[in-house]
Design a protein around this nucleic acid. Structure first.
Lengths: 242, 242
DNA sequence: CGTGGATTTGAGAGAAATCAAATCATGTGG
DNA sequence: CCACATGATTTGATTTCTCTCAAATCCACG
């Protein structure tokens, strides 16, 4: 039952964590309720008290907050293998929304089952804790991105980050990846207006760094783009942490 | 030995976590190496692989990243009772700097001891994990602050946040708190230039919302300031999470 | 073939940065 | 106790970046 859904998670966890066979089989035997979501659909909303967390088997999701005057800030993008609301295991009231960006196949695991797993398998608990810490590390980098970098650099940084993360789960081919995100949504990630996003993308296109025709991005010059975005991947903590 | 140092931590953890007597005494018996740091001193730097985490017994610290072109972004401010580099327990290479803002008394706990504690006391492990999740929640709100709010609102938001957090550990008196931070450093928290911070503070002063003479801030109209900052405290997860 | 969302481009306004200089502590050494 | 150096704050003038407003184009889909 859980097998096919948990695979994305296991693939991801094994990249950077030491899990033994028993850990893996404990994850595989987790009861998972699977559900398909349309694009642009709320999964959990601010103020909710979810009793389960969701694992992305396929598709993209994002977390966002809406300000008093109706502006939206996307605080994270999530790709297959991630559990975007794992924090609700210990933070019982949602402080933000979680929604799908594209159609998604999600696997829901109850907090009860997760707690049992964490109790029985300390390695898994550590690995999951670590996932939330990597999450936080990416938040930190986004604060820097939005706080200190001009628009074009911000965009180059975001695209470089996505390339690394998608590559780690094998969803890139030759520097290109599929990500059906609108310019408005990119602006909400970067704290920019949709109009400015358009100009910034044009600039990166004119510089020969990227090719962007929804839904696919092609990074024509990966090194050049990373330089343009002052990108340095260590904050992603992608290499096994020895 | 650990007692006096761990008290700040226990006080903080007990606000929002269910710890029993054995949990508390396990924390109290933790071996702690205490050390005094001057103001504006690096505790751990980006790239380091610390073998211990530090607990702030007294004073203020901050975490920051420096961009390629030398600009600094402060990603978090830390107050007594917090463990600002707890993430290094699972993320072995530091992706940012940790430094003192003021003179600090710090207690260092080895990762080995923390791991042993987490193994022996699941409640404590959960409480510490939760602390890192609250950390992440504050990061999310800072992304919103820096990404979507104009300067004056940003400042009002930050000051309101600090008031709540300091009040929770009993470091405010009648809406006032001591925080020796320069306008340059405030700018680094908010993604603003020092000059603009000055103007923004003047504006809040002229509106009768605050009084700010280093090192003390007095929030003359707490509700008004929160409104000005579009501040809503739930992201701090300060109430016991039932 | 019409409709609504997404993208693109232009023009003007506004927020914040930068540059520059003056003032105001604060602490040190003579 | 004063002179001086250093860092922090304050204020003004100018520039730059990004937003908002507006309109045109493009595209996918029923």
């Amino acid at each position: 039952m859980a097998g096919p859904f948990a695979n994305a998670l296991i693939t991801k966890l094994l990249v950077t964590n030491n899990l033994d066979d028993e850990d893996v089989s404990a994850i595989l035997s987790l009861p998972i309720r699977s559900q398909r979501f349309d694009a642009h659909t709320l999964i959990v909303r601010e103020g909710d008290r979810p009793e389960e967390s969701c694992l992305i088997a396929n598709g993209f999701a994002f977390r966002s907050k809406t300000t008093f005057d109706g502006q939206r800030q996307i605080v994270s993008l999530h790709i297959p293998g991630e559990i975007p609301d794992l924090q609700s295991l210990h933070l019982h009231v949602m402080d933000h929304d979680l929604a799908t960006l594209t159609p998604c196949f999600l696997g829901f695991i109850t907090h009860m089952d997760l707690r049992a797993l964490n109790g029985a398998r300390p390695n898994v608990a550590a690995a999951l804790w670590r996932e939330t810490l990597v999450d936080a590390s990416i938040f930190r980098e986004w604060i820097v991105n939005v706080g200190r970098r001009p628009g074009t650099v911000r965009m180059a940084h975001l695209l470089s980050e996505l390339r690394y993360r998608l590559e780690a789960i094998g969803r890139t081919t030759d520097g290109a990846f599929e990500l059906p995100i609108t310019q408005l949504e990119l602006g909400d990630c970067l704290g920019l207006s949709a109009v400015h996003v358009n100009r910034v993308l044009k600039e990166l296109r004119d510089e020969g760094l990227i090719q962007a025709e929804r839904p696919s991005f092609r990074l024509l010059d990966k090194a050049g783009l990373e330089e343009r975005g002052h990108f340095e991947p260590s904050y992603l903590h992608l290499s096994p942490s020895l």
